[in-house]
């Protein structure tokens, strides 16, 4: 028993210091007004939260992040599912496709965001060049905030598609072959077999993928920072996203309490999504049981 505590002590101490304490601290900090340097740290109650409700930047960030997350997740799921169904058949090319589609998942975000920024470039980007070949006008992909949001969605789908595909593939492979064979013998078409047998069995994985990728999408930051901020055909104002707004308030305006209140809202969104997932998953289990 002594061994347990001695062995766990370093990792548990670390765990408390870098995770439990900051999570608790962020709730606490959200009720204070503090600029990081000043020794004065007045308690302001719900003021930070009330301020957020009237803060246009925050509301815009919340709206943009929500649109971004739901669009990215919806698109990535709708593309990944048929992709996985097709790749689950035995094919010599299956491994090749899996490798290629998975590639963006493991590449670091900053360099690929830089590459995408160049692809989206208004004057010399290959995307606008491609549009010009089919007679379409150039699109200000990153300079118009409304369009830039969708440029980020496209890149987000590209980055996460392979991950969803792989999870769906495992789910499909776990479906007992007898179920599908039995359905074939009964004369079910491919289409019927998918919707009546595979799809219901894939529901838990589908749910898991949708919720976890929505949570990840809500934390979008790096590509926003690289692609829409600063120079090289960047807009005057970046696409406001939640984490970007937290970063700006916390580390450019040093409004630590205010930024913490935003962070708390992000935490609550994530917790809400998790609760939804758990309750839906439990419903599934109850039905199955």
């Amino acid at each position: 028993m002594l061994f347990c505590y001695v062995a766990l002590l370093p990792v548990v101490a670390l765990f408390f210091y870098v995770r439990i304490i900051p999570i608790g601290f962020s709730f606490l900090l959200s009720f204070y007004k503090w600029n990081l340097i000043s020794p004065r740290r007045p308690f302001v109650g719900w003021d930070n939260y009330l301020g957020l409700m009237e803060d246009e930047n925050f509301l815009l960030a919340l709206k943009n992040t929500t649109i971004y997350s739901f669009s990215t997740v919806a698109l990535a799921t709708m593309i990944a599912l048929p992709l996985a169904v097709f790749l689950s058949r035995k094919s010599r090319l299956s491994a090749f496709y899996q490798t290629v589609y998975f590639l963006p998942v493991i590449t670091p975000m900053v360099p690929v965001a830089i590459a995408w920024k160049w692809i989206y470039d208004y004057n010399y980007g290959i995307l606008n060049y491609g549009l010009s070949l089919v007679g379409l006008p150039s699109v200000p992909w990153l300079t118009d905030p409304d369009i830039a949001l969708w440029a980020l969605v496209i890149m987000g789908v590209w980055k996460v598609l392979g991950y969803n595909m792989v999870l769906f593939l495992v789910g499909i492979r776990n479906i007992p072959a007898e179920y599908l064979e039995a359905a074939s013998i009964d004369g079910a078409s491919d289409w019927q077999r998918f919707w009546r047998i595979s799809f219901p069995l894939l529901r838990p994985i589908l749910l898991y993928v949708i919720v976890t990728s929505t949570i990840n999408a809500f934390n979008v930051f790096t590509q926003v920072y690289v692609m829409t901020l600063g120079s090289q055909s960047a807009p005057g104002q970046a696409v406001r996203m939640l984490v970007f707004d937290i970063y700006t308030n916390g580390f450019q305006f040093f409004r630590m309490g205010y930024a913490s209140a935003e962070a708390v809202i992000l935490t609550l969104i994530v917790l809400g999504l998790t609760v939804i997932q758990f309750s839906l998953a439990r419903d599934d289990n109850v039905k199955a049981g």
């Binding site: 870098v18 995770r19 304490i21 900051p22 999570i23 601290f25 962020s26 900090l29 949570i215 809500f218 934390n219 930051f221 984490v243 937290i246 916390g250 630590m256 930024a259 913490s260 962070a263 708390v264 992000l266 935490t267 994530v270 917790l271 998790t274």
Partner: peptide, 11 residues
């Protein structure tokens, strides 16, 4: 499940 971005300020 709590994202790093949500507690990076206190950290």
């Amino acid at each position: 499940i709590v994202p790093f971005e949500a507690y990076m300020i206190p950290l």
